[in-house]
Design a protein around this nucleic acid. Structure first.
Length: 114
DNA sequence: ATTCTGACGTGGG
DNA sequence: CCCCACGCCAGAA
């Protein structure tokens, strides 16, 4: 996959994260065939700010920690969005993370990247 | 063109 | 267990 498609592919995957579930930077990067590009996934979220319809709040780090909350408008906007979807969040940490974790490599077919 | 900096994750020491 | 280095890609200076 070339670089132009990477951001696009990230958005493609993030848009498929179901309501009430969350995924991680690393699992998305891995799914896209670039296991080391987790940072770039975060960068893509940052770039999606505002104009795009991307559920960026459903992407957290591999420990279920809301590392990206600082990039949302309200101090607790990211957390509030997650809570409004029925997710338990305490102190920027998602509880029962393994239960609501949504892995694209498992729930999405690995073909057709774009 | 070059350098630096991230919403990360892994591996080595 | 803690700390450090590095890969990854885009965008700003």
């Amino acid at each position: 996959m070339n670089k132009i498609n990477f951001f696009k592919s990230v958005y493609h995957v993030v848009k498929k994260i179901p309501y009430g579930r969350v995924s991680t930077y690393g699992s998305i990067a891995k799914y896209l065939g670039s296991p080391g590009s987790s940072r770039v996934v975060g960068w893509a979220m940052n770039a999606s700010h505002g104009r795009m319809i991307i559920p960026a709040h459903r992407v957290v780090n591999r420990n279920g920690l809301l590392t990206g909350k600082h990039h949302f408008h309200g101090t607790n906007l990211m957390q509030d969005l997650l809570i409004s979807e029925g997710i338990d969040v305490l102190n920027n940490q998602i509880r029962n993370f393994d239960r609501i974790f949504w892995d694209p490599s498992v729930h999405l077919m690995p073909h057709k990247i774009n």
